[in-house]
């Protein structure tokens, strides 16, 4: 049977349908739930094998991107989220979803309620929202979403607060040591961007585009692989036909179906 993916919806989320299409093409069954319904109807999270927090501007990004959606996660679904993730089920947060998982203290590592965060996603170094196509290199073999992917991924970024920052440089090294750096921005040929703009579009430390938790089942990334899953979406079809984002979702779905 197909793995069932629960897609969180909150006011302002707008790439829920985009990611649903990608997951369905990857072989999952998708269910989009407004946070309010999830909470009031006491939906049972155990019915789902995948958790998806999509992109958008939840609650208008008031008080910082993803912060109020993070508040929802921490206030209404604390136990559900812990149980789901501790069970090793795959979860993914894309763009605003990534921001929410970081602000909620779920990524890169679970932090206790009032312990200060070690990492954040802040304003792009360019000081403005930016939409452009980037190239991603899947790195982490721990992450169930990027494990074994050998192709570069071309896809758009579309965000104003995607600049991954850490409190201590040593913490960035810890992420490397734990194989938690899932995806990095590169030149189109796969060479490291080394912070060069626009290949690294937001100034993220170590060209980090996505990170996973230590267990590898939770992935957060700023770019939108769900927007390069169909031929007509690819800008440079003639020269770069095979750098789709779909394999990442196939990976996640395959993992979920083995649970």
């Amino acid at each position: 049977m197909k793995p069932r993916a629960m897609i969180l919806f909150a006011p302002g989320i707008n790439r829920d349908h985009d990611v649903a299409t990608a997951l369905e093409m990857a072989g999952a069954e998708t269910f989009i739930y407004p946070v309010k319904q999830l909470f009031e109807e006491k939906i049972d999270w155990a019915m789902f094998q995948m958790l998806v927090v999509p992109g958008g501007f939840s609650y208008a990004d008031a008080l910082g991107a993803g912060r109020l959606l993070a508040l929802d996660l921490n206030s209404y679904f604390t136990d559900e989220v812990s149980r789901f993730l501790d069970a090793g089920k795959p979860a993914i947060g894309i763009c605003n979803g990534f921001q929410a998982l970081v602000k909620a203290g779920i990524l890169p590592d679970r932090s206790k309620a009032n312990e200060p965060h070690k990492a954040t996603l802040t304003f792009n170094q360019s000081n403005h929202f930016e939409c452009r196509w980037v190239t991603l290199k899947p790195v982490s073999q721990t992450c169930v979403w990027t494990r074994g992917l050998d192709q570069l991924i071309d896809c758009p970024v579309a965000h104003g607060e995607g600049n991954f920052k850490v409190t201590e440089p040593v913490y960035a090294q810890t992420l490397v040591d734990n194989d938690q750096i899932a995806l990095v921005y590169t030149h189109s040929d796969g060479k490291p961007a080394l912070g060069a703009y626009p290949q690294n579009p937001n100034g993220s430390v170590m060209d980090i585009a996505g990170v996973c938790n230590r267990a590898g089942n939770v992935l957060g990334l700023m770019p939108h692989p769900e927007n390069n899953i169909l031929a007509f979406q690819t800008p440079d079809r003639a020269n770069r036909p095979d750098h789709f984002g779909l394999p990442l979702f196939v990976n996640g779905v395959r993992y979920a179906s083995q649970l």
Partner: peptide, 8 residues
């Protein structure tokens, strides 16, 4: 500064 990719 405009998202021209959303909705795919």
């Amino acid at each position: 500064v405009y998202d021209h990719e959303v909705q795919g």
